[in-house]
Amino acid sequence: MIFIQALLAGIYQVVQMLLVLAVAPGLVGLVRVVKARLIGRRGPPLIQPYLDLHRLLRKEVVLADNASWLFRVTPYLVFTAIWLAAALVPTFTTALALTATADLIALVALLASARFFLALAGMDVGTSFGGLGSSREMMIAALAEPAMLMVIFSIAILVRTTSLSMIVDFMLDGEVGLRISLALAAISLLMVAIAENGRIPVDNPATHLELTMVHEAMVLEYSGRHLALIEAAAMLKLALYMALIGCVFLPWGIAQPGDGPLAILIGLVTFVLKLACGAVALAVFETSIAKMRVFRYGEFLGGALLLSLLGAIFLYVSTGL
């Protein structure tokens, strides 16, 4: 019995890895379509991101003369780190083989590793754009990461764990109820997610050649398969954050260990639905707000940090454990 469970967990893990990889570009495509419709354009087809990735993968890489080995290794490292991170967040079931590998704190650190290498790669060629992107990315991270950790603290105190599967199981039991700290944590996590994924109002994923850009400036020198990997990693990261918000705050539908195939099916369907709702919400939010100046980021993310800290403090005081 235990063997079968372990086997199932392994299979679910592989399914989940393929699933996130398969739906991530579609998610970005959906956001683009909805955004285009909202501002009265027809927009690209839903499968455009898949086509883009396919085209980039087949193209040759144009490397700058002075690019080092670090520049060539980074896309692979960043892609696999974020792919692994996305595979750790329960999407349709909590019975995942790798779930004990990393808890939420390790997940945040894994994303930090990916960011570290990407920022270094941005500085490798030695153009001013790369340095600009890296420098701003690290500034954003310096605020977003602690905010994210404080959100995790709030959740962890409430459910007494930082393991994602256990959080979902606990939330599904419905003992938590509505809590003001949880609301604060949710708002803070949304703000962090927007900043980390480079969405409006912090960064504009559609922009190019503008002094306000962050992520796109950092990866400016990439081309061909390297660019494909980095774009795919960015898409995975968006899917990861949506899955994370979904599994912590809206865990309904996620199958638990021991559930049958029907529950798995329900889990899959609800996951795709959650992502679709998230995409629409993101598109609506992005079209209804203007981009911020770079030096307003500090206030925006500082706000996120303080909100999450406030939430954690409420909980520390109110929970006797």
Binding site: V61, L63, A64, D65, V125, S128, E221, S223
Partner: peptide, 8 residues
């Protein structure tokens, strides 16, 4: 892979 001047 092709080497070239940086894009920038």
């Amino acid at each position: 892979v092709r080497r070239s001047i940086p894009w920038g």
